[in-house]
Design a protein around this nucleic acid. Sequence first.
DNA 1: TATTTAACGTTATTTTTTTCACGATTTAAT
DNA 2: ATTAAATCGTGAAAAAAATAACGTTAAATA
Lengths: 217, 217
Amino acid sequence: MSKDERTLYFPKASLDRLKIYRRLLTETDSEYISSEDIANKLGINPELVRKDLSYINYKGKPKVGYHVQSLLDELNELFGLKKTTNVIIVGAGHLGRALANFKGFSKYGIKIVGIFDNDPQKINQFVGELVVLPLDYINRVVRRFNVEIGTICVPEEAAQKIADLLVQNGIKAIWNFAPVKLEVSEDIIVVDEDISQSLLTIKHLLERKQLEKAGEK
Amino acid sequence: MSKDERTLYFPKASLDRLKIYRRLLTETDSEYISSEDIANKLGINPELVRKDLSYINYKGKPKVGYHVQSLLDELNELFGLKKTTNVIIVGAGHLGRALANFKGFSKYGIKIVGIFDNDPQKINQFVGELVVLPLDYINRVVRRFNVEIGTICVPEEAAQKIADLLVQNGIKAIWNFAPVKLEVSEDIIVVDEDISQSLLTIKHLLERKQLEKAGEK
DNA sequence: TATTTAACGTTATTTTTTTCACGATTTAAT
DNA sequence: ATTAAATCGTGAAAAAAATAACGTTAAATA
């Protein structure tokens, strides 16, 4: 199987699990880990782990398991964490600033190279080591740093406009924190990070738990 | 089908889609919407929309579609958005403060009633209308406001300890922004909001797109 | 009022994903 | 050097989910 083929297709659910395996591995101290260990920690079954890993054509050792470091390497490669990607943030509100200040991104090969806002009060303010720039500077920062990812941290009313602006300026992927469905051309990657949505999950689970409890009685 | 039964089981993927339908409906002005409209906007097919809605036993009108407001009501009910839930935040760093300041939660029946930190420098600082309190105040705030959900916004090293603390104090669900797998007893709901994980998705998609492009040539 | 039509609801089919089962491989022990 | 034991890898079976097909219903129109 060639390198091209192996990234060609496998189930979305597997991809999501691979991300989880990756995180688990970063928290693992031992040299080897078995599919059963992984499965137990995640509450799934080991065959599924083995199958997922077979999609990326990663081989374990019988009787020993998977070599943690080399599997981690492989997964980091799969997710493109080994090369640095430059990212800009649009919106210097609380969230935008929180992201710009977050130290953990470097582990993922992410570098924040610019933060923008249209509020004159915010422009020129420092955010960590960056200075908030007006929106017209997006173009030159994108060119200068070869930026592929744009992060939207503006209120939902402004989100679509900013998305358009980013696309115009050559952004390839949008990380969208605004709670709206953006309309962009097919070749633009959009990943929604609508944190309010998780609240739906939590509240739903709480509700259900209560119903279950009521049902038991 | 009784109310109890109808929340009993349906596919996880359907639940996720229902959340998306809900958001779409909040952005919809017309009185009715058809399964086809919904499907088109989301890039899925209409039968799937109808099937998802059949799980919650919601009936549309032939030739007309679904009544937007009443479906929205139904979904809000399903996700427990109609009643207010009190929430606390542990960790008054950039992220914790960003969350405490976020105005959008009220739409989801969420009220932030406390923010906590162990850093003496942060204690007593104002965050919006709240004052940062030391960790030992968690207990009384939880009791006073009947808090069910605790939000973890502390560095990953501290996350497990805070989780334990929250559980001790009677928290039922944890909204975890720290990038670690928390170990808690089975009856505690944990929803991970590891935003770095989305970066894996974005980077992977970017990588794959490049491979595809290379393959075309 | 009968007819047409658009969109729903649901059963059947197909596809996808997961689980099962078992042979193959590697290490360790006798 | 054999044998035993643990764990992998993978094809087959089962389960779950998505899609297709089609009958049903309600609105609109003649």
